[in-house]
Amino acid sequence: MQRFDVCNGDADGLCATVQWRCHEPAQARLITGLKREISLLAQVQTQAQAGDEVNVFDLSMQRNQPALSRLLDAGVRVRYVDHHATGTVPDHPLLQAHVDLGSEVCTSLLVDQLLQGACRHWALVGAYGDNLTAVADQMAIASGLSQAQRQALQRLGEGINYNAYGESEADVHLPPTQLYAVLARYRDPLDLLAQEPLADELDALRQADLAQARHLTPLWQGLQGAQGRVLCLPDEAWARRVVGVLANELANERPDQAQAVLRQLPGGGYSVSVRAPLQRPGGAAALCQAFGGNGRARAAGIDALPEADLPRFIDAFAATAWGTPG
């Protein structure tokens, strides 16, 4: 029997996978990619056969529906854990679907529930990286972690998440497959922090990129900063890396504001990362879906927004009723 682990290359996806393999050690082929590489399940189609096992972590089922259906029809067992849009969930005996679209969950926390907290510290790293700071803090305090330990796990999670953003692997510090190999050496991320320079390396790069981004003037912002801001980054390596991190940083700094961070694409148009106000975590997915994007209620994105649609997007962003579902 072959095993495959398919996951997003951000903090949530990688930490969910690390948890599972710490709890259930087995040889499995890892298939992952950068943040916006979502349709990864198709890579398994030509390799998996009847009786094989596939785990999917932190990838929208809606974006992977065709490949999922083909795998199930071929007799492949699939465990699917996620918190993104599903579309119609197949009713199939070989599918175990664990999906929660709530604004206060992420895939790492869903895996933590399945494993009954067996690898809780990795779940916290994933949650911190997914910008669920308040939820992660509550769980960390309940687990007896000190403030210094919580801050260390948060710094690691934010660094792993930062490493997922880029147009290609040349943009990032470590390709996600290599990063996973480092993470998977340690059952406890606190041991990784004590023995590896990874968190320091990622944080230094992250802070340098954020410093450049903070000099930008918003394309649009509400009166006196109310409602939100729209920023646009150039098509440069530092901007490709920082786009998602910047959106989270701005959201944390102004929990009453929505944030939209655009990046110019080399062929024209923009990629977009949207964060709903932390005080009203809803509406991001509905906004992005109206422009061909997707995501969750509190955080969503658009892979390619045409330049001609930018004024319409800004108008829709300004008019969004944040806090509503979607």
Rank of each mutant, 00 (worst) to 15 (best):
P25I: 10
Q259M: 09
Q257K: 02
R3I: 00
D200G: 13
A319E: 03
I314G: 07
L250I: 07
R79Y: 12
E104M: 02
Q113A: 11
R63W: 02
C288G: 02
A304Q: 13
R155D: 02
C22A: 08
T32C: 13
L278T: 01
A74Q: 14
W122A: 08
L198D: 15
A237W: 02
R296L: 12
A67V: 04
D315Q: 05
L145T: 04
A304P: 03
R240G: 04
L305R: 02
A152W: 02
L265Q: 11
R150C: 09
A50H: 14
A97W: 02
F317D: 05
Q116E: 15
T177S: 14
H215A: 14
A194L: 04
V105G: 05
Q221R: 09
R63S: 02
P311N: 06
T133V: 08
L250V: 00
T324M: 10
A308V: 08
F313L: 11
V182S: 04
Q47D: 02
V6Q: 08
V6G: 03
D58G: 15
Q65K: 13
A74S: 14
D52H: 15
C106V: 14
G129S: 14
D203H: 15
V242S: 00
V54C: 05
H98N: 15
G126S: 10
Q147N: 14
C7H: 09
C119F: 04
Q49S: 08
N252I: 07
G244V: 13
Q224S: 11
Q207T: 09
Q19W: 00
A123L: 10
T88K: 09
D171L: 08
R280L: 12
